[in-house]
């Protein structure tokens, strides 16, 4: 009698943990399917002809239904290569500026004691709470005055300003945790303050820079608002805007619509596949604890 509760408890324990694991996997797998399903449906159907899309939307493209007609329409009608180029230029240059200028500012705020330090830290971080879009009216006027409307430069400036606060915030928090000794050591070794930043601090914050890069990249690449307002000319359209307008014109040509969506999705997925490990380790390293 005395030992029965023991065995039963352990048995119950085992079956319970098995049951728990099954539940955990069921929920996670279920949600993963929900997360991916729409994307997969679109990509699959983009490789079908019109009939395939409508009769069997959930089937894989087969010999009957396989077709690249959507892609050929998109590539011949839209200037997607140009749009890609625009998006790429805007995103890469903005990211570069956000990371470089943000890291420089974060370094100054975390490393040096000076009178305005506290005020400037708060000032830089204000932008996290206030979406830059609220200033759209004035941004447009400013761009008109600077003669930058319908240029990629206007987008680059706005995105850099938009990305800086969160970059400065995350990097400052992280740089504060860097050992002071190592910078002092570099000082004793005779490095100038600039070289300390480039040769000692930057290599140390590289993983966090990657996280900031991914986080800043998503809203820039995907933004619709500012391209629509500041740079909607044909020569300066970004992919997001291009796709949006293309779809607007081709609502009846479903293969073209699906193909253009797929074209817009794929590069992001590829980039994500490359960076995802870094992204997650960056987040979990505590840099984004807030």
């Amino acid at each position: 009698m005395t030992d029965t509760p023991d065995t039963s408890r352990s048995r119950r324990g085992r079956s319970k943990s098995w049951g728990t694991a099954a539940t955990v996997h069921a929920v996670l797998l279920g949600y993963t399917i929900i997360a991916l399903f729409p994307v997969i449906v679109v990509i699959l159907n983009s490789f079908k002809n019109r009939r395939g899309i409508f009769t069997e939307p959930l089937a894989l493209p087969g010999p009957e239904t396989f077709s690249l007609e959507g892609y050929s329409t998109v590539l011949s009608e839209g200037s997607f290569l140009l749009y890609y180029g625009n998006s790429l230029i805007v995103t890469v240059v903005s990211l570069f500026l956000i990371l470089l200028l943000g890291a420089m500012a974060a370094h100054a705020l975390s490393e040096y004691r000076f009178r305005l330090n506290g005020i400037l830290s708060v000032y830089m971080i204000l932008g996290i709470m206030v979406p830059i879009r609220l200033g759209t009216v004035a941004i447009l006027q400013l761009m008109v005055q600077l003669d930058l409307v319908n240029t990629l430069v206007s987008l680059i400036f706005v995105y850099t300003a938009q990305g800086l606060p969160i970059a400065v915030f995350i990097l400052t928090e992280f740089m504060r945790t860097l050992s002071r000794d190592i910078k002092d050591c570099a000082r004793v070794d005779g490095l100038s303050e600039y070289r300390i930043f480039f040769e000692v601090v930057l290599p140390l914050v590289r993983p966090v820079l990657a996280t900031v890069a991914v986080f800043s990249m998503i809203p820039i690449w995907n933004d619709l608002w500012f391209p629509l307002i500041l740079a909607s000319s044909d020569a300066t359209k970004t992919v997001t805007l291009g796709v949006q307008q293309f779809i607007g014109q081709y609502t009846v040509n479903w293969s073209a619509v699906l193909a253009s969506l797929s074209i817009a999705i794929l590069p992001v997925l590829v980039l994500y596949a490359i960076f995802s490990r870094q992204l997650i380790s960056g987040i979990t390293s505590g840099a984004v604890k807030g």
Partner: peptide, 15 residues
């Protein structure tokens, strides 16, 4: 500047 004082320093955290 520290580097020109003819000193070398060893830190607790090794640095």
């Amino acid at each position: 500047a520290p580097s020109d004082r003819g000193i070398a320093m060893v830190f607790q955290s090794y640095a």
